[in-house]
Design a protein around this nucleic acid. Structure first.
Ligand SMILES: [Mn+2]
Ligand SMILES: [Mn+2]
Ligand SMILES: [Zn+2]
Ligand SMILES: [Zn+2]
Lengths: 134, 134
DNA sequence: TTACTATTAAGAAGCATTTGCAGTTAAAAT
DNA sequence: ATTTTAACTGCAAATGCTTCTTAATAGTAA
């Protein structure tokens, strides 16, 4: 009586998951496409997009619906926070405790239901900072 | 010796600011275009985009670099948090204290510089929730 | 008024993402 | 092992949001 998901584990899907989980770099779809191509040279970009969509709706990966022009994808599903470089666009994890308490505050103030949250920090990454000081 | 900004306050720019500041709804560029058209029927969408870009780079409005397919714009410049409905996409302010302390934590953990932050809540808005319960 | 140049409207272009389709293949059924 | 079937793929074309180009227009200063 629940949704029937007849998903197949194709080579393509398997390798997309593997490559995404190898890195901590939150790649865009086309970056991931390049990574996967090393192992499957004929895979198309639309297959990457299609699978990223499927995998994220299954909760197997995270689609980062956040800042920047391109979407980014994350192999880590547990809630954690990110910091994005305003110069070069790179995204890193921030290893700190999450603060789920604020969801209850937001729920009361907004009267929305089923509240979750993300925090996105922005700053200048070490690379870009050291470049700017010569 | 600072950047000379020879910006003109045109009818179009004036009315775009006014209409954006009238609402709390964080409109997309095309929604704002429709609003402005009531007063300036011949204004083009690209003029709206161009002015929103100019105004946000001047710090007069906020370009919300956040979730969803379309960018949204905010007449309120001070840092505050938002909640977005996962069903219909509407975005509301969340009137709660901001927690700038976490920026120092993120700065130490990430070694990024000049850290700022946004919090975005997600949930089901009252409209969508009442619809779903009949 | 005249000169100067920021700004405009309209549409084309750019670019990330999605979709249609005909052929392919994983995996359930036999 | 073979058949069956619908999910999946690669490719190309389409879509949708945003930015850019261009000739005309309109603030601003002299
Ligand atoms: Mn992450
Ligand atoms: Mn707001
Ligand atoms: Zn950087
Ligand atoms: Zn809603």
């Amino acid at each position: 009586m629940h949704t029937q998901l007849n998903h197949r584990m194709t080579k393509q899907r398997q390798i997309i998951i593997e490559e995404l989980r190898k890195v901590t770099s939150h790649p865009t779809a086309d970056q991931l496409h390049e990574m996967v191509r090393k192992r499957l040279p004929r895979i198309s970009l639309s297959t990457v997009y299609r699978n990223l969509e499927t995998l994220s709706s299954e909760g197997m990966i995270l689609k980062m619906d956040s800042a920047g022009t391109q979407k980014r994808f994350d192999g880590t599903v547990e809630n954690h926070y990110h910091i994005r470089c305003s110069r070069c666009g790179r995204v890193d994890d921030v290893h700190m405790e999450t603060i789920p308490e604020i969801e209850e505050i937001a729920r009361r103030r907004s009267s929305y239901q089923s509240v979750s949250h993300i925090i996105e920090f922005t700053g200048i990454c070490p690379n870009c900072y050291s470049q700017s000081r010569g």
